[in-house]
């Protein structure tokens, strides 16, 4: 399944669910975010059924970025039952994200 593009309502509905949720905070003007996009899609496919992967555009949903202290993008946060359990900031390879997710599922 492809990564889900989330608005505020969709975000809260998703992160409160039982399944862990990986959320990529990004923006159109951010080059590294664009580079990361295919990695995020690969993670969505790899963890299908185990982890839901979503994307939040910080320009469209700035309140979420403020709420979670996203101050540099890309920032990828892993939520388990509504709580942030880990995050990675910046452009990184897929292995780093895989290790973060595997440590919490």
């Amino acid at each position: 399944m492809a990564a889900l593009h989330l608005n505020e309502e969709g975000f809260f509905k998703l992160v409160e669910s039982e399944k862990p949720v990986l959320v990529d905070f990004w923006a159109d003007w951010c080059g590294p975010c664009k580079m990361l996009a295919p990695v995020i899609e690969e993670l969505a496919a790899q963890y299908e059924g185990k982890v839901t992967v979503g994307k939040v555009n910080v320009d469209e949903v700035p309140d979420l970025a403020v709420r979670y202290g996203v101050m540099s993008i890309p920032t990828v946060i892993l939520f388990v039952k509504g709580n942030e359990v880990d995050r990675l900031v910046g452009l990184m390879d897929k292995e780093r994200f895989r290790l973060m997710v595997d440590a919490h599922i």
Partner: peptide, 17 residues
């Protein structure tokens, strides 16, 4: 605090501030 308020690039992260 890197990525939690510390940034190395004004052009990249300035919009968030």
């Amino acid at each position: 605090l890197l990525g939690r308020g510390v940034s190395y690039c004004a052009v990249c992260d300035g919009m968030l501030y």
